[in-house]
Write a protein that binds this DNA or RNA. Structure first.
Lengths: 234, 234
DNA sequence: TAGTGGTCTAGACCACCGC
DNA sequence: CGGTGGTCTAGACCACTAG
């Protein structure tokens, strides 16, 4: 790892995301992390402050630092992971891949993303189901030039988003949020009325300038909202 | 101001937001800000790093720090200002206050916000019009206990959001994004078809724990999207 | 009241990159 | 090459609050 604070942050994030440190778990005090990593307090403080600003942990004087309770609402502008979120929230979750194919990118998408037309993309359509109710429909393009191993991945254990998050660290991301009326096909998939308002979250991620993936995720508008909480200081 | 880095950040943000430092303007070097505020380099570095993470400025070694180019799309999770955005984008803009009244907060809203029921709120409904097309309908509550002078403000020059941004610095904010179908009243106001999907942005802001304002802004879903761009480290 | 996090200092070395 | 930002140190004092 290049920087010490990156390594510390990655370690803590991994322990939280894996469930090894569940919500409410007390995180080592700053002086303990200082000793563990052999660094100064400023360094661990920066890491913990950043994680707190991102909502992953909660810090209170005297009481210490604990893993934050997962919100049942999604934070806008964070890379989301249905499987992880469901595990943290204790919800039954499964997914179903409805379509899979390798296709050259079409002109419109190439323009949108900033790639040359014809680049080979793995195209996946996935339905995310929680407690037996369809909660989201995901259309995803994965750039096989950046992530060639995705072409051989069956996506049986983890949905594409989770698999990608674990495999390809992203360095830049872009989110777009829109509202659309469900067409009949979408309504059928999500078990909602045709014409219902849906929230569409479009996310594109890059790794060091190389395009990784685009996901268009459609949520029933009456069951989902995106939430962000923040302070100017961060 | 309580903390030095807050004061530095507020100064810089104010200069950027007011247009005194336009996009591309070079921001003083860290050592210059150290001298100006009589503080250590770590302090100004924290401020500038935060502003860079928020996308307000761009930093490059050797080249220095400059005010970032504004995006033509709205950033989710930033306090938005129709008037300012329109000016920056060169669009004709005006607004119309459709309703104004002082009312005690109802029980549901009090619960939602975390206030005691009956607190006096200034209630405003505002239509935002750009190039003669209604682009957003805003329903806003302003806490007269926190901002008493709002009760006497006619809101002739600036819409309520702009006026508030200039007058009351916020320390915490929460955004909620949802998708809803337009009812007939909303459809008429926004000149769209009844049932059209609309994006609803709900924003609440606090100043040092005191509730300031809640705004529910409804956009035609086909004409607006919220965009955020970010990197993991911040 | 004692222990925690919040902030700040006055240095330091290094990587990057425009000149 | 030199100047910039990125990171880090080894302290310090203070604010808050649980016990």
């Amino acid at each position: 790892m290049k920087h010490l604070h990156q390594r510390i942050r990655d370690d803590i994030e991994a322990k939280i995301m894996s469930g090894e440190w569940p919500p409410g778990h007390r995180i080592p005090y700053e002086h303990e992390l200082m000793a563990e990593y052999g660094c100064s307090r400023m360094t661990v403080n920066k890491v913990l402050s950043t994680l707190a600003a991102n909502g992953l942990i909660t810090r209170r004087r005297r009481a210490g630092t604990v893993v934050a309770e997962p919100s049942n609402q999604q934070a806008v502008l964070q890379i989301q992971d249905f499987a992880l979120e469901a595990v943290r929230a204790g919800i039954d979750y499964h997914f179903k891949i409805l379509h899979r194919g390798v296709e050259p990118i079409d002109a419109a998408a190439a323009q949108r993303i900033g790639l040359s037309a014809g680049t080979k993309m793995l195209c996946l359509s996935t339905l995310h189901v929680m407690d037996n109710i369809p909660q989201a429909f995901e259309q995803r393009l994965i750039n096989l030039a950046t992530v060639p191993e995705a072409g051989e991945e069956p996506f049986t254990d983890d949905p594409p988003g989770t698999w990608l998050l674990r495999r390809v660290p992203w360095t830049d991301a872009e989110h777009i949020v829109r509202a659309v009326n469900a067409d009949s096909a979408m309504a059928k998939r999500l078990q909602i009325q045709s014409g219902s308002a849906c929230l569409v979250l479009e996310r594109r991620t890059w790794q060091a300038g190389a395009f990784v993936t685009e996901a268009r995720i459609t949520y029933p508008g009456d069951r989902h909202q995106l939430v962000g909480r923040f302070s100017p200081v961060a």
